[in-house]
């Protein structure tokens, strides 16, 4: 029992922080530019593929360093030469544009690297287990993911809180036109934010590739959850995204670890469920079986009771 809690906690943290790396960029871009970037998870995937290709030639560490930078640069260019031109036609064309980019990325990845999962491996130094508790191992690599995420989180927060650029970005969240009228180069800020946001997704892709698998479905695999995080936390709120990421990470891993079903609850009340019981299948479905559904359920409940999300401020 104790070991399940410890391991679920750690796994939940790893997964939650990975979600935050992804959703922080998405929510930052949304709150500033009003664009829900449907291609965000595509950049995450693209970075994993880049990291794989670089790692073959130069090693894992160069992949981790360069893949997010390249993807961030591509993201900035997509904003500069694509999104900025579409911007004047309104939000729906913008949404369709990012949708198109998402498709393009998925096709591109399959075209270049094929449909199969790639052997993107972690480096030798990060192989093996960090500690063994009650006979179960905790891999070094997961601790590495945890540390990378935390470091990035601290850097992001410090830049936003203590630098002048960060101040301009915080002001531009929600009020970009006022910031422009004060003489700050808003188009440049948009481009940089988009680039940094996609680079954050890139870091997530480069570190997640070896454990979650590098394959053409990895974008859609995590893309849905990412939107749940952003909506649950409140569109445009970095703090909300952080809390929502950890919550969803933890809830999902705990749910997987718990092999209980409603029939067990009934058993406590001396009600025995048999195959003849009405709706038998539902009562015996275990929590771990419905774990993937829980985040979406959370999102629906949140949208019903608090449409702005945990900490969302923007009305539209």
């Amino acid at each position: 029992m104790f070991e399940t809690i410890i391991f679920s906690l750690l796994n939940g943290l790893v997964y939650g922080l990975l979600l935050f790396l992804l959703s922080s960029g998405l929510t930052l871009i949304f709150s500033m530019m009003g664009v829900l970037n449907l291609a965000h998870a595509g950049f995450y995937m693209l970075s994993a593929y880049f990291a794989y290709s670089i790692s073959i030639h130069l090693g894992f560490w160069y992949g981790l360093l360069f893949a997010p930078l390249i993807v961030g640069f591509i993201g900035a260019m997509v904003e500069r030469y694509g999104l900025r031109k579409v911007h004047k036609f309104g939000h729906v064309p913008e949404l369709i544009f990012t949708f198109g980019v998402a498709f393009l990325l998925e096709e591109l990845v399959q075209f270049v690297w094929g449909r199969n999962q790639l052997a993107y491996n972690k480096p030798e130094i990060l192989e093996g287990s960090l500690f063994t508790l009650f006979g179960a191992d905790f891999p070094i690599y997961k601790m590495f993911m945890l540390i990378v995420s935390v470091v990035i989180f601290i850097i992001l927060l410090s830049v936003l809180k203590y630098t002048r650029t960060g101040l301009i970005i915080r002001a531009a969240v929600g009020h970009p036109n006022v910031v422009g009228m004060l003489g700050h180069n808003v188009p440049l800020i948009f481009m940089v934010t988009f680039g940094v946001g996609t680079a954050l997704a890139g870091i997530a892709g480069a570190i997640a590739g070896p454990v979650l698998g590098t394959y053409p479905g990895m974008a859609s695999g995590l893309g849905g959850i990412m939107f749940v995080v952003v909506i649950f936390g409140g569109l445009g709120s970095l703090g909300g995204a952080f809390i929502a990421s950890l919550m969803i990470g933890l809830i999902q891993t705990f749910a997987i670890a718990i092999d209980a079903s409603l029939s067990d609850v009934f058993l406590l009340m001396d009600i025995v469920i048999t195959e003849q019981t009405f709706m038998y299948d539902i009562w015996v479905t275990s929590l771990s079986q419905v774990a993937p559904l829980i985040p979406y359920l959370m999102m629906v409940v949140m949208l019903i009771f608090r449409p702005a999300g945990l900490m969302g401020a923007r009305e539209s």
């Binding site: 036109n177 422009g180 009228m181 180069n185």
Partner: peptide, 18 residues
């Protein structure tokens, strides 16, 4: 653009106390 105009030395104080 607004930011270029602002840099030329033209400022605006908007109606809604922004």
């Amino acid at each position: 653009d607004a930011y270029q105009i602002s840099r030329k030395g033209l400022a605006i104080v908007l109606e809604n106390r922004s």
